[in-house]
Write a protein that binds this DNA or RNA. Structure first.
Lengths: 197, 197, 197, 197
DNA sequence: GATGAATGAGGGTTCATTCAT
DNA sequence: TATGAATGAACCCTCATTCAT
């Protein structure tokens, strides 16, 4: 009889191994044999839980997006003021759960696949769209008289750039420093006084 | 003397074909046979002019960096005022010679290789360092009382983020829009009045 | 006793599914997982009722042979005259119970395995031998002065050829047409007057 | 510089090895690694000369058809009388160049693939059609008052059946015996006197 | 009896690289 | 200088078979 919940466990194992492998050796060298070895299972098992390698990769990107969404959602729950809500979105994209060595490596790797992979592109568009919407919602009460769309685009681009630079560095990414750069911009542009503690 | 400069011609052919191929089918599918076909030469020829595939890729990244450097240098030549010098650096990184569909695609592809490829990483560090130095030099006369390093980092990150987003989009990248976002930030942060014509 | 005969039921299910699968996708693509899915059981069950895949295939060929034998035997039961007995053998090999799309497909598939599979070869030799013996017995009273062995061989070869051609055609096999060709030969060779109604 | 005619040599090597392999171990076990080993080349080379395995197999079936056609054509060249022309067709399909152990094995193997492989089916229809046309042409002057189509079909089926039986036997096929069975049928049916020397 | 998760060998295929020409 | 034939390792994937449940 099938062990209950085994499917979810195995899928998670394999997705985690995929992220770890991409971090360690990169996208190109993340073969299924390496991934399954890292997950501690046989190569054949992958095709029990995923249609093929592309399916595993898509699920992995989806998971990265989910992690990001959860990081924002959990912070929004405790946010009361407009500034707190804005910072929930910013911090949700810079927090220590997501802004990890493995996380930024995997993100960069997947981004590079997007231009030539429609299925990954679709997932990525959802993730990017969600960040943009979150930013616009959070910025609107704080930006009377400004072009909120442009500011959201700038902040999103800045966040992307910081993720990119984090991925390119050898050291573990420093979310705190990255966060301060975003706050500094917002304070200057919107005449806010978000504390940079 | 008909063969004079043959080496340089062939190397350039192959590098151009590499960039074009990466743009068209991505890094993973840019096999040497595809690249050489695109360059109109045989597969074997690659190893006459490059040690191996890694060597060709490194040369390609180097060329991308050179293009960027030249775009900045040529603009700096006509720059007189501090603001003009700053804009020379910005525009050199957003100008239509470099901010092309092929250019941004190739950049993104190489970025993704850097974390797991020390040789490419070395080249990339040089390029990043040069942009940072250029920015610091240009910003210093305009930023009394500010942390010039932080501002340079923010601008550089923003530029990277804009390149990244340009690569992820389907449409040809719009350097003008990207440029305006950077100017807008600088005007707000440094109380400048760089015209956004 | 509800489980009584379960073994026979399961074996029959799987054999039928094997024949159906071979007809649908061919011998090569008739994997155990496909066969068991078609039979509506799990993959593991096959090894409860058959030693391995080769065993299932052998049982399937045996069943095909049995079907043929029964088709002949049942017709022989009502045959009185020598001609009727001959026609019982012919029709038993061309009748609508056996000369079906699935039947001819499966036969052809198994024939192709025989030269390199001793176990299947053994089964096939029994089936071929039985047809030959049946034909010789039925022909003897009708072929005074002829080489009964040669005629039996020719008829058997002709029947095989007609099965083969039926399997290669896209349309459902036409046993009636095939039958008439055999009768026509016998009438010509033996100066008989078997009606071709 | 490419060795002239190398392509034709290699293709022939590989096709011959394919036929030999099918004869030795059957269609299913004729992997590319086995075929290329038998041809004395590496596995990778197959894809220089054939698009993929299906392409090699199709070329192999085509070659078998060509061999058959040539065997008939060469005999037709010396045929003067109608009977000689008929025998040229018969003997061309039973001659020692084509009615070999490897030949009949490969034929049976390919026949079994036809129902589930449209590309092979197309080639096979051409071959079958050619035999039928040849037979009708040769039979027409000898069959006044008969249904020439039906006789051609019977002869073709008989030939197929004899090939089939030859493939199923362990011994090398005996073309002479097979040939006599066909002649015997024709003599009986058409009141001919083709000598059975 | 029955399931389907798990294994690992072997399949076809692609590829960077080498080398005879 | 230039070719492309040739190699063999590594890839993804499928499969028969086993076994814990």
């Amino acid at each position: 009889m099938p062990k209950l919940g085994m499917e979810e466990i195995r899928r998670r194992q394999l997705i985690d191994a995929t992220i770890a492998s991409i971090h360690e050796v990169g996208f190109a060298d993340s073969s299924l044999s390496r991934i399954s070895a890292k997950a501690g299972v046989s190569t054949g098992i992958v095709h029990h839980y995923f249609k093929d390698k592309a399916d595993l990769l898509e699920a992995t990107l989806r998971r990265l997006g989910t992690n990001l969404r959860l990081a924002v959602v959990s912070r929004l729950r405790g946010a009361k003021t407009p500034v707190e809500r804005l910072m929930a979105v910013i911090d949700g994209n810079m927090g220590s759960e997501v802004f990890t060595p493995e996380g930024v490596s995997a993100w960069l790797a997947f981004w590079a696949q997007v231009p030539n992979n429609e299925r990954l592109a679709r997932v990525q568009r959802i993730i990017v769209g969600r960040l943009h919407d979150n930013l616009v919602d959070a910025l609107r009460p704080l930006t009377p008289g400004h072009d909120v769309q442009a500011i959201a685009t700038l902040v999103a681009s800045l966040i992307d750039g910081l993720w990119l630079r984090a991925a390119l560095k050898r050291e573990p990414p420093n979310g705190e420093t990255a966060r301060l750069l975003v706050i500094d911009y917002l304070n200057a542009k919107l005449n806010l006084n978000i504390p940079m503690e």
